[in-house]
Design a protein around this nucleic acid. Structure first.
Length: 543
RNA sequence: GGCCCCAUGGUCAAGCGGUUAAGACACCACCCUUUCACGGUGGUAUCAUGGGUUCGAAUCCCGUUGGGGUCACCA
């Protein structure tokens, strides 16, 4: 077989010599130990927590080693393309402070561009042509129908499915048959002529999983599709070589195709990058758990977290605690240190699937939010409200002074202990709402109407907006005593049967009457800020 | 089904041949309390299973079971 002629027929025309690509995309001039990592999404525009999870790992590893993180767009499949996707991905990641050094629409060093795989067609084809010339790749004319028939046959016979060995029909086509097919204008793909045998196992060192065994590949995988564009596997080998990637951190779902990638790198004569296959973020689905999916879990999209107003740093801290098990302890000891100063390590990444735990995220969110100053909170909430808030909510920010005071009170700034009442911007906006209007009753009074009216009436009689906190609370106690409630907690606890309840219950009645809720900051201060008129009006309305 | 990965409380997990098997979230109780929160203290709860190896196993080996991933001209 004249492979040279076949290659020319399959991929006609002059291609630059292979070495020229080595020169065009030279090894990077980086300090020793610097890692080059990448994020390589397909342009569906959809990005979820699992993607962020991997993104943070790649970003940390690149930047803490003095290396490079770049963005490559894997757009070899037109069906996946969505307009504006690259912008969407960049925005989502920027929100979480993932910064690229170079890549699609990033700017920076363009030595290794283009960053869209579709624009790299020539490089791929040059190397495919080379493989054909060497007899390591061949055209395949099988139709979709033939292929699926083959599948069924193999399934029925309980054999491994795929295009390999004796099932690789086109592998053994004669020269005449090939040219006849070509002359008839039959569409074709180009497949790798695999030399492997899955019975042979190889030791492989994975940066996350450690030593694993990998069977040799024997699948004659498609490397160039009938539209002349490579498949993921082939593009991966070419791109990660010429973009000089040193470490590929990618999802565990790729582990199964590692044998293909190993063979491809060897066939091309490239040194391969190191790999780390990270566990997927899982979701509880009824009895079992499964990996996060774009289709089934839209609520886990990054967009969802922005809409809810999750604090980016909190999400990042949570991801980091999942990513590196020693992070949490480090963070506890170094609460003030920038997150970047944590020594991230691929070897510390979990080997088994991790269930996403919203409770934990929420806890971290409260902590992170409680560290903000009133101004920082103002900015955080305003940014959120500008994009996602209602008109009413946007209005809260008009009177900056009032908003700042409100936040100061609601966050417990200046008090002994910071409050931690809300998890997200949208929750925060709900929480502070009673300042601007009495919220519709969220919590029910836990007493009968008669008691409530009696309590409120006697409080109203004593109420004086000029009272300071102590005097105010003394009056709450009096109100309690007058209505059969214990004024002192201790007294109530020793003889609960003597009372209807304690001063706490009275305070709750007043709180609900004033705000609509049982959970608010200091009630006395709230009433002061609301003013006498508003306070009286709100309470009277509850009689 | 074949192949590969994984296995410590409800969840995230420390542990690397000898520990009372850390810690965090959640849950419960109590304490603090000028109410709501915050905070503090304590508690419930884990080494999937069967065999080895060893004086000694959560830790090493093998089997079993269970969970996950993957088997496209998708990435």
């Amino acid at each position: 077989m004249n492979y040279k002629a076949l290659a020319e027929r399959l991929l006609p025309g002059e291609y630059p010599p292979l070495e020229s690509y080595e020169e065009k995309y030279p090894p990077r001039n980086l300090p020793k130990g610097a890692e080059v990592t990448r994020l390589a999404p397909s342009p569906t525009g959809f990005i979820h927590l699992g993607n962020l999870f991997a993104a943070i790992a790649n970003e940390r590893i690149a930047h803490q080693s003095g290396g490079i993180l770049y963005l490559r767009i894997e757009d070899t499949d037109l069906k996946r393309k969505v307009d504006g996707a690259v912008e969407a991905v960049k925005n989502a990641l920027r929100y979480f402070d993932i910064k690229f050094d170079e890549g699609a629409e990033i700017g920076g060093d363009d030595t290794y561009a283009p960053w869209y795989q579709r624009q790299r067609a020539e490089i791929y084809r040059a190397f495919v042509k080379h493989l054909v010339e060497e007899g390591r790749a061949y055209p395949c004319f099988c139709t979709e129908e033939e292929l699926s028939a083959l599948r069924e046959e193999q399934t029925a016979k309980k054999e491994v499915t795929g295009y390999y060995g004796k099932y690789a029909k086109c592998r053994n086509l004669s020269e005449e048959e090939i040219y006849r097919n070509l002359d008839e204008g039959k569409p074709f793909v180009i497949r790798l002529k695999s030399l492997g045998n899955p019975e042979n196992k190889r030791k492989f060192r994975d940066e996350i999983k450690g030593d694993i065994t990998v069977p040799e590949n024997d699948q004659d995988v498609v490397i160039l599709k009938s539209d002349g564009i490579p498949t993921y596997h082939f593009a991966h080998a070419i791109d990660d070589h010429f973009m000089r990637t040193t470490l590929v951190i990618r999802g565990e779902e790729w582990l199964a195709s590692l044998p293909i990638h190993i063979e491809l790198f060897e066939a091309l004569g490239f040194e391969r990058p190191r790999y780390g296959h990270n566990c997927s973020l899982m979701k509880q689905d009824g009895e079992s758990r499964r990996k996060l999916s774009k289709r089934k879990d839209p609520e886990l999209s990054l967009e969802f977290y922005r809409k809810e107003g999750y604090f980016a740093r909190a999400v990042k801290v949570y991801m980091l605690t999942l990513l590196n098990s020693n992070f949490e302890e480090w963070y506890r000891k170094n609460p003030e240190a920038p997150l970047e100063s944590f020594k991230f390590s691929a070897g510390k990444m979990s080997k088994s699937g991790t269930l996403f735990d919203l409770d934990k995220l929420n806890d971290i969110s409260k902590d992170e939010l409680s560290k903000l100053s009133a101004e920082e909170m103002f900015d955080f909430l305003k940014t959120w409200a500008d994009e996602y808030g209602t008109e009413t909510q946007k209005g809260y920010f008009v009177d900056r002074e009032k908003m700042l005071n409100t936040l100061t009170l609601c966050m417990g700034i200046g008090g002994k202990k910071r409050r931690k009442d809300f998890t997200t911007a949208s929750q925060a906006m709900e929480f502070i709402k009673f300042f601007f209007e009495r919220t519709p009753q969220e919590d029910e009074y836990r007493c009968d109407q008669e008691t409530r009216v009696a309590v409120l009436t006697s409080f109203l009689k004593k109420y004086d907006p000029a009272d300071d906190g102590q005097t105010w609370f003394a009056k709450v106690k009096e109100t309690a005593a007058e209505n059969g409630f214990a004024a002192e907690m201790k007294e109530y606890k020793t003889n609960p049967e003597n009372y209807k309840g304690s001063v706490a219950d009275v305070a709750e009645i007043l709180r609900i009457a004033t705000t609509g809720r049982a959970n608010t900051p200091d009630l006395c201060t709230i009433q002061q800020i609301l003013g006498e008129k508003e306070t009286r009006a709100r309470i009277k309305a509850q009689l």
